[in-house]
Write a protein that binds this DNA or RNA. Structure first.
Lengths: 253, 253
DNA sequence: CGCTGTCTTGAAACTGCTCAACGCGTGTGG
DNA sequence: CCACACGCGTTGAGCAGTTTCAAGACAGCG
């Protein structure tokens, strides 16, 4: 909030995404933020405390990715969200009484603040306020798509959706002409993210591999030969490209 | 953001909800907001445009409830969120290319602003900024629970979760000793919210009715004899009471 | 080399979905 | 006033897709 400027995303209503894509505010992290936050380097699996000696924490992801997992009484686990560079997470986003757990899915770097300090920064610097607001809005919109995927897609659609998401985020053009990207989550976490059984997920990916859409040159890395074909498998393809930007697709690795 | 004050919610980490519940900031709507916003009276089914002649809108729910529905290409519909009094909705929360649609599920009243104007208000009034931030955080936490429900619960658990949610929100002690509340959504919308088939939902509710937990004294209204028993059916009961407050449970209708 | 954790795969069981029929309340026109 | 169509909810039967459970493959590591 704070600034009267228009959202960087060209604002759209319903309807198909135009080719001019809303580029998320990566790189655009306000300098004042980086100067004030505590830098935390993350390693895969590392968990991040939601409180800093009793007071609420806020995180801003600079590199790598985080995930928020909740666990409900009978051991039902759900990975609620994956946070990519540019995303923000306030501890109050975690639901109470649900064993909320924030952890890194890959090595990277996050900025950490006390919420009180962060709010003061935002109050005094419109750029920070606007950055935070836009990040929250972007993430909320992404969550909506994820919700629809988990609520309505069959297993192949869900997996395709996730792969497209990863490809758009971290994909690089491979020398051989396809698209490669990290698969930082293990099968269980991926299944928990997609609301699937780990066995079902494994089967589904095997089928994608068998159909030639996907291959695993090495563990924790995927190669997609024909991105268009993969995107055609998920009803959310348009929304995802609009949300993540297609910048990644042109980067060469 | 803006204010350095601590969130009204006593901040908690993981673990079970204590009996002292985080009361959502109803009634606590800053006066300055009400003075500035355009009052919109809603009727059931009425849809709310996400843009005010081309610029982004924000809504603050004062009474009644709204729902956000997305529809993906093959006609897959998902009700992503239900917004109750005190909740806020910024148009940028709606995902692009997903036929996002915001509509009223019951008659009520919402305040409408242009986002630019709202942001300016928040920048100048810390109380408004804090109200908005806390509302967004509360809603995000609720979404996390909903995500877990859609991703991991079986149909009975999902329906129980929804009923508990409604009971906590709008439930009143009935003269006969149970709890009554409105059921503003029709079967289809409820099913879309829960990620279920409408037929399955109907069956599930019939079973609940047959087991004596639920009854329909009149259309669009439910009566729960034994709230504890209903709450015992959902793994999210603790989280829901922590998020919605139990104030409603003591109100007499 | 053998251990462990992760991933894969198969067969059976089950849950929820599809499709179609029916009941009911409401609105409309004869 | 009745007949009819319509929207909405309910219900049954059969089916499809997912989960469950258990066994096996594979890589990493002491």
């Amino acid at each position: 909030m704070t600034t009267g400027l228009k959202t960087r995303d060209t604002f759209r209503l319903t309807s198909a995404a135009p080719s001019e894509v809303a580029v998320p505010a990566f790189g655009g992290l306000p300098g004042a933020l980086a100067a004030q936050g505590a830098v935390v380097r993350t390693r895969r699996g590392q968990s991040l405390a939601l409180a800093i000696d009793g007071s609420e924490a806020v995180f801003v992801v600079r590199a790598g990715a985080l995930m928020l997992r909740v666990t409900l009484p009978p051991g039902l686990r759900q990975v609620v969200a994956i946070l990519y560079p540019g995303d923000v997470f306030r501890a109050a986003f975690a639901p109470p009484a649900a064993s909320a757990h924030l952890s890194a899915v890959s090595s990277g770097e996050v900025l950490r603040f006390r919420w009180t300090a962060f709010a003061d920064l935002a109050a005094s610097d419109p750029e920070i306020a606007r950055y935070y607001e836009d990040a929250v809005a972007r993430q909320t919109a992404r969550q909506a798509i994820h919700m629809a995927a988990v609520g309505r897609f069959d297993c192949r659609q869900r997996v395709a959706t996730f792969l497209v998401e990863l490809a758009l985020r971290t994909g690089m053009r491979a020398p051989c002409g396809g698209l490669t990207f990290e698969m930082p989550l293990n099968r269980t976490d991926m299944a928990d993210y997609l609301g699937l059984n780990a066995d079902t997920l494994s089967r589904t990916m095997s089928r994608l591999r068998a159909s030639g859409l996907l291959s695993h040159p090495e563990r924790h890395r995927a190669l997609v030969r024909d991105f268009e074909a993969l995107a055609a498998l998920t009803p959310a393809a348009q929304s995802l490209t609009a949300l993540c930007g297609e910048a990644a697709l042109s980067k060469h690795g």
